[in-house]
């Protein structure tokens, strides 16, 4: 069990380290990939906590999502290469204060609460996935379907906002203005 604590701690440290790098580097791609590896380390923590399906899922999803984040960072940051080394932050003190106090409160809760006896064993990954599937189709079916609706909403929202409308009217207006 010490081994488990060790691995959780190691990957936790990695996640924290990469998380710090995210806001400390001036190269945007580095920043995005640091976030990626932070999330990967979180996924590895899941694995170390024997939550295999979620861990592997986290490792996989974050690789693609954070890479897409990287391209958006490169598109919208003034200096994605970080060559100018400029500082893109504000209200630093306040933020540090807020971050530290949030962390301290959470840690205090974690340390001071009585969590009761911890479960010794969990079932293996195969059974976990199966149980999650049954949960998905049983008690949490509405959550699952609601997630579907939410995804749909997000797709529509993102498309509607981001994609320029190129219908005939706007095209004509464009031509007229030219």
């Amino acid at each position: 069990m010490y081994a488990q604590a060790f691995f959780v701690a190691v990957f936790g440290l990695a996640a924290i380290g990469f998380g710090v790098v995210v806001f400390r580097t001036s190269s945007m791609v580095r920043s995005a990939l640091a976030l990626l590896f932070s999330q990967t380390a979180v996924g590895c923590m899941f694995l170390a906590m024997q939550t295999e399906f979620l861990g592997v899922l986290q490792i996989m999803m974050m690789a693609t999502e954070m890479s897409i984040m990287a391209i958006f960072m490169v598109m919208f940051m003034m200096d994605p290469g970080g060559l100018g080394g400029m500082d893109m932050s504000h209200q630093k003190r306040f933020s540090i204060g807020a971050g530290v106090s949030a962390a301290v409160v959470a840690i205090a809760v974690a340390l001071l609460s009585d969590w009761g006896p911890a479960a010794k064993q969990v079932v293996d990954a195969e059974a976990q996935t199966r149980a999650l599937g049954m949960e998905l189709l049983g008690r949490s079916m509405m959550i699952f379907e609601t997630a579907g609706i939410t995804i749909l909403t997000a797709m529509i929202a993102a498309t509607a906002v981001a994609i320029p409308v190129q219908n005939l009217a706007s095209k004509r207006a464009k031509e007229a203005s030219e």
Binding site: L33, L36, E52, F53, L57, I59, M60, A63, E126, T129
Partner: peptide
């Protein structure tokens, strides 16, 4: 692994990360 089919997906997702790194 109990999630082997998913794990291979997860591992191969990092091909993208490697290529982006090599590109940048």
């Amino acid at each position: 692994l109990g999630t082997g089919a998913l794990f291979i997906n997860a591992a191969l997702a990092y091909v993208l990360v490697a290529v982006i790194m090599a590109g940048w």
